[in-house]
Nucleic acid binder design. Sequence first.
DNA 1: ACAAATGATACTACTGTGGTATCATTATGC
DNA 2: GCATAATGATACCACAGTAGTATCATTTGT
Lengths: 135, 135
Amino acid sequence: MKLITRDTDYAVRALCFIAKKRGEIVAASQLVKELKIPRPFLRKILQVLNRKGVLNSYKGIGGGFLLAIPAERIYLLDLVKIFQGQFKLNDCLFKKKICPNINTCNLRKKIMNIQNYALKELRPVSIACLIGRRK
Amino acid sequence: MKLITRDTDYAVRALCFIAKKRGEIVAASQLVKELKIPRPFLRKILQVLNRKGVLNSYKGIGGGFLLAIPAERIYLLDLVKIFQGQFKLNDCLFKKKICPNINTCNLRKKIMNIQNYALKELRPVSIACLIGRRK
DNA sequence: ACAAATGATACTACTGTGGTATCATTATGC
DNA sequence: GCATAATGATACCACAGTAGTATCATTTGT
């Protein structure tokens, strides 16, 4: 069971790297070398980030990527949402028919608690925060 | 993303039902009717619970299942372990090579926090607790 | 002996994750 | 203006986990 999948993780690392370059255009090849992420997989991830408006892309020689918004405003939870969908810990188990069995309601509350705690912890986490520029 | 899979959930419901019967032998067919769980799937789950020593089984006419240990000592986390393996929120993402990138360490700490909170919340939860007999 | 229950085991379908491969498009520098 | 170096778009593939089915063997009460 994992909170964060590999593509989200790779996205975070790539964005941290790009953020640290502070305005310097970073090509996929550079990221591949530095972060040891399989090239085509990383490219796909970067393209998604571009489509979602997190990165700007530049084609041609000397091209690559730049943050489209400041690192302080790129939130982990948004990245999770992009690659994994809405953050939920009780996906489709209980939500369909609201508790067919009363027993599990109790359990559901516990899970909701945990989810809320997780959200509270994760909500403020941004790329800036992960590279030590915030908090 | 889900904390608890369907088989764990079904196991919980079945155990709650059996616990409420207080010593009365419960057959799979009865559980199928009451809990609306697909019969062969439920049977498989019950067999696992029997092998793991959570349930005792009785063959033949009038046979079925009984709790092998008191409901107070059947813990949710043990059931999770049986059906999903050890409870971990950062499965195999970071543990292999400890943080290839220093950036993610920060993130890893957050996830560990969440996991610890989740464990603290879930550890005391037993079948007895879920049917309202404890706490 | 028969029927009603579980035991054991093997198989199937679907979905999400983690990728790969290919071709099209755009921009730069000579 | 052409080669080249970059990204864009898209389709495909392999594997593992989840969810569930199917079948036959065994035990037990009447």
